[in-house]
Every structure is written in structure tokens, then in C-alpha cells.
Write a protein that binds this DNA or RNA. Structure first.
Length: 424
RNA sequence: GGAGCGGUGGCUGAGUGGUCGAAAGCACCGGUUUGCUAAAUCGGCGUACGGGUCAAACUGUACCGCAGGUUCGAAUCCUGUCCGCUCCGCCA
């Protein structure tokens, strides 16, 4: 959420930014409402001050008559104040409604447009495989090697759930181990996180769990929701806290299950593991100063590349276009892996993404930092990035590493944990 | 799930409906002094938003989990809610 004062001062450029993202927000209305609101606020404060003064005189009033008069005056002042306050609150509410829809600012280098306008930045070290045979998709490969059970998943939990079996389980765990080990070596503190979080935390991160188009599962009669990503819990870890500037950047990597309703995704290409209601993910998260966040974003992007280079998976990195950025993101890089089994002849499929959310989340969660020796606090910047989402990574690994004889090579870095070099 | 207790400043922890923005201690910052990784002593020490100033000084409002209510006046009373703790039950 953008600062209100900032909105008022920079309304034209914010409108421009909204237009760039294809979001319509009545920013000018905020400017008008805000000045009315401040007027009401001053009025209410003034009336309140008078009421305070009046009530302070009452204990000193000796005789009953002056006392009674003061009480009357106080009552009247309070009533006037309450009216002004109510009017203020209504204005405040209207402003917040608009304000909450305003997306974060956008990095100047972000390409303009929608999904198709994303800018291809570069490719990974591993070239696309050249098959001398018709490659199978991961679902077929899974059947062949008894790796998944989608039917049982549907029977037990409904469509979109699955069981992993045999080497798929080893691969799933291996990917987690690999990512956590690598990130620990790079100064990220590993944490396992709750898979549920309170509604206000989700809101702070920029989700609206109880809204009409939510992707979030909520537990009825409680404030709990199943998390869609550890970004929620990792960001929430420091909600309301003030961090000493020397401790920044604070780098975490969290392991969690992720739950998504995928509402509205019915009918979209969703075969197999690609679009599911539950998966496992190792997530990077960082709290930084404003000066550090761009560099940290680069770092996260590089780490994602390093991981997928190590997994020997071909990929490309794209700079997501303005219209395709989520509300909280200032800039977002997606890493898309080559998936030979998707579509006809293979397609790119998103496997990780990293966003710089600047102070959008920290304002809502109230995470600040303080420079020692200096007065006051500032909002931190937050960044998140997928290290590995095991399901989608597995798709890429299985489909790219399949051999003509139907066997599948296990990437070297995972072999210690998988316990073999070949599946089948 | 049942019962009870509790949420106060960076932390610990007082607080009778009226000068409480809130005692005290710790921590922290500054001064003094004795002089050896420290002790003693004095002073300062919340946050947000607004006014004020070159900048300060100064000043207004709000904030004692959150939201309502009662009252001239609420940290203090009432209701709801969220969170936490303890005990019991259940359980990996």
C-alpha cells in the first residue's frame, strides 16, 4: 500500500503508473477526499481539545451549579466531536478503499504491456534437449515408472491433489535438501514455517484471503488460512517489528507447503503436476534497506539461475511486463523452464519468480528499521523469490532428462539424496 | 473440546474513573568522579501524525492487543473479538 501523503503529492505519476499496469484507480478522488478528511480531523481534534479542557475543570468546580454547566458543555462538545469524527471515518474508509487497489510503483526498466510483452533477458547454461524420439510428458513418464498417483489423489482429496511415489518422493526431498543446503551456504537462514497464517498477515503481504476471487483456502470460523506460499509467513515473521539497520539485509529461506484453490483455472492447461492445489516450496525472503533492495533482487535472480543450472534444466529468464505484475511487486523476474512435454513440441513453463516489493508489504505489516544513533524509523524493503517449487521443478527434470530407452537421468547434484543416477 | 488467567513503553513490571504518556527496575544515551576490561553518581530516554522554526526550542492530537459501548472524563467500568499462558481432556 502506498503512503497516502505520497499519493497526494504524486497523484499524476501514480495515475500514470496505474495506466502502465492496466489498473484503473481513481487517484484524483483520493486527493479531494484526503483534504476533506484532514479538515474533519482538525475539527474533531479541536473539539476534543475543548472537551478535554472542560472535563479537567470539573473536579475543581466547587459548587454544583457550575459543575452541572460544565458537564452540559462537555456533553455537547463530545457530541459535536463524535459527529466530526464519524464524518472523518467515512471519508477515511472511502479513501482506503481506493488506496488498497493502487499497485506498487514500477521499476523504470520494466517492459510495458501484458503477459506477451515480457522481456526475455537471457537463457540458462543448459541447452534445450534434442530428442531423436518422441519425448513423453511427465505424466506418461510417471506412469511408466510409477511416480505419481493422480487418481488416488482425486479419490482422497479431489481433483488437483496427488500422491508422489518411489523416486518422485526421493526427488521431491532431494530438491528441498539441495535448495536449503545451497541457500544456507549463501547466508540465508533456513526456517520451516507454519503452513497456516492469520488473515491480517495475508492482507499485509497483499493477499485478500476472504475476497471473492481468492486463491487462498480459509478455515471457517477462525482467522486461519492455508498459506499459498511461505512468502506470507516469512514476511509476517517480523510484522510490527523494528530491525536495527546493521542487521540488514536479513535473508531467510523457508520451507513450506503451499495451498492454492486455483479458482478460475479450470480448463487451463493443467495436466499433471503443473497446476495443483498443494505443493512444496523452498522460498527465499529478504528484508533490506531501500538502498539494498535492487541488488538483493539481482542476487535472488542469480540464485534461481544457479539452482536451475545445477539441475541441468534449460530455462529462460524474463522481466515481467507492467500489466502482469501483481499489486505488491515493483519488479518481477520469472524463470521459465523448458518443458518438452507441454503443448506440442514443448513450452516454457514458469518454475520460479522473484519480486522486489519495495515498501509495499512493510507498510501494511509495519516492518521498520532503525539506524543506530538516528531518530525515527523507516520501512524496510521486502523481496521474495522461489528457490525451488518441487512439483514444477520435477516436471522439468523428468521431461528434459528422459532417454530414448525410457530411463531418466537424475541431475548430479541430486544424486546423493535420490540415491541413484538413473530412474528406471 | 472444557476451565481459569492474562495482553501496559526496547525488555521486566506497577497502576484507586479525573494533572497517567503512564511508577519502579533493566537496557540505552550524555555529564561528573574515582582511574585499569568496571563501579559510583547526576541527567536524559516511547511512537505516529499535525502546527511551529533555517534548524531547534516549543506545541496540538492519538496510542496501555483490537473494535465498539458507558461517562463531562476510561489503561482503569461494560460488550465483543483476536492472540497468548496455565490446567484438564484428546492426540502424532
Amino acid at each position: 500500500m502506498l503512503d497516502r501523503k505520497y499519493i497526494v503529492q504524486n497523484a499524476p505519476s501514480i495515475m500514470e503508473n496505474c495506466a502502465r499496469r492496466g489498473v484503473s484507480c481513481d487517484v484524483t478522488k483520493i486527493v479531494t477526499l484526503e483534504s476533506q478528511r484532514l479538515e474533519k480531523l482538525r475539527l474533531a481534534e479541536d473539539l476534543n481539545r475543548q472537551a478535554n479542557e472542560t472535563s479537567k475543570q470539573i473536579p475543581k468546580a466547587a459548587d454544583n451549579e457550575t459543575r452541572q454547566k460544565l458537564v452540559e458543555l462537555g456533553r455537547s462538545l463530545r457530541e459535536q466531536k463524535e459527529t466530526a469524527q464519524r464524518e472523518h471515518d467515512e471519508l477515511d474508509q472511502s479513501i482506503t478503499e481506493i488506496q488498497i487497489e493502487i499497485p506498487n510503483l514500477t521499476h523504470p526498466d520494466v517492459p510495458e504491456g501484458g503477459e506477451a510483452d515480457a522481456k526475455e533477458l537471457y537463457f540458462g547454461k543448459t541447452p534445450k534437449p534434442k530428442f531423436e524420439f518422441a519425448p513423453l510428458d511427465h505424466v506418461a513418464l510417471g506412469e511408466r515408472h510409477d511416480l505419481f498417483d493422480f487418481e488416488a489423489g482425486a479419490r482422497v482429496s479431489g481433483a488437483g491433489f496427488y500422491f508422489l511415489k518411489n523416486e518422485a518422493v526421493r526427488l521431491d526431498l532431494a530438491l528441498q535438501q539441495f535448495a536449503i543446503s545451497l541457500l544456507s551456504d549463501r547466508g540465508f537462514t533456513p526456517v520451516t514455517t507454519p503452513d497456516m497464517a492469520l488473515t491480517h498477515i495475508l492482507r499485509g503481504i497483499g493477499f485478500n484471503p476472504r475476497g471473492p476471487e481468492t486463491q487462498i483456502y480459509s478455515i471457517e470460523d477462525t482467522e486461519l488460512n492455508l498459506v499459498g506460499t511461505a512468502e506470507i509467513t516469512l514476511g509476517g515473521m517480523l510484522a510490527g517489528q523494528t530491525i536495527e539497520a546493521e542487521k540488514l539485509p536479513l535473508k531467510l529461506c523457508g520451507l513450506s507447503h503451499c495451498f492454492r484453490t486455483e479458482a478460475g483455472a479450470a480448463g487451463r492447461a493443467s495436466k499433471g503436476l503443473y497446476r495443483v492445489h498443494q505443493f512444496t516450496k523452498v522460498e527465499m525472503f529478504a528484508f533490506t534497506t531501500p538502498e539494498q533492495s535492487d541488488a538483493m533482487h539481482e542476487t535472488m535472480r542469480e540464485l534461481e539461475c544457479e539452482i536451475f543450472d545445477a539441475l541441468e534444466v534449460p530455462y529462460r529468464v524474463i522481466d515481467t511486463a507492467s500489466g502482469d505484475l501483481g499489486g505488491p511487486a515493483y519488479r518481477k523476474f520469472d524463470l521459465e523452464a523448458w518443458m518438452p512435454g507441454r503443448g506440442t513440441g514443448g513450452e516454457w513453463g514458469e518454475v520460479t519468480s522473484t519480486s522486489n516489493c519495495t515498501d509495499y508489504q512493510s507498510r501494511r505489516l509495519n516492518v521498520r528499521y532503525k539506524q543506530t544513533g538516528q531518530k525515527g524509523t523507516e520501512f524496510v524493503h521486502t523481496l521474495n523469490g522461489t528457490a525451488v517449487a518441487t512439483g514444477r521443478a520435477m516436471i522439468a527434470i523428468l521431461e528434459n532428462h528422459q532417454m530414448e530407452d525410457g530411463t531418466i537421468n537424475v541431475p548430479k547434484v541430486l544424486q546423493p539424496w535420490v540415491g541413484k543416477s538413473t530412474i528406471g
